[in-house]
């Protein structure tokens, strides 16, 4: 069974910015949209594993800092003509706290 994990305060993530959540095995980028929506995505670009957390976020996608692929934060899929997909995770905000569901 998987559970919701409390990660951090919403306020600790800049608007249109990100934080990195690190477990023993993976890194997950948590993004915060302009309307305080939260997205969680594996911090690895489907192209060449670029750290998506370091990209520029816009709407519900992020531009990878290494070669400018655009990745959907909703589906993890590369947008436009590029092809590839990375994992996304369920996330939610309650009482100003950010929760993440792994697996």
């Amino acid at each position: 069974m998987s559970n919701w994990l409390e990660i951090t305060n919403l306020e600790s993530i800049p608007v249109l910015g990100s934080r990195v959540v690190e477990t023993d095995s993976i890194k997950i980028a948590i993004f915060r949209g302009k309307d305080d929506s939260i997205f969680a995505i594996k911090d690895e670009c489907p192209h060449k594993q670029g750290p998506l957390s370091q990209g520029i976020m816009h709407g519900d996608s992020v531009t990878c800092p290494l070669h400018n692929w655009k990745i959907s934060l909703v589906s993890g899929e590369a947008l436009g003509v590029d092809e590839g997909c990375t994992n996304v995770y369920e996330s939610k905000v309650e009482d100003g706290k950010v929760f993440l569901k792994l697996s």
Binding site: P14, G17, M57, H58, T63
Partner: peptide, 27 residues
């Protein structure tokens, strides 16, 4: 678009900080 994109955000950011030297939007 609501938030612009990586291209126009960076360009606009530069034009803004050139006008207002204190301006900075890290994101």
């Amino acid at each position: 678009t609501d938030d612009g994109c990586a291209v126009c955000r960076q360009a606009t950011n530069y034009y803004l900080l050139c006008e207002y030297p204190e301006y900075n939007d890290p994101e």
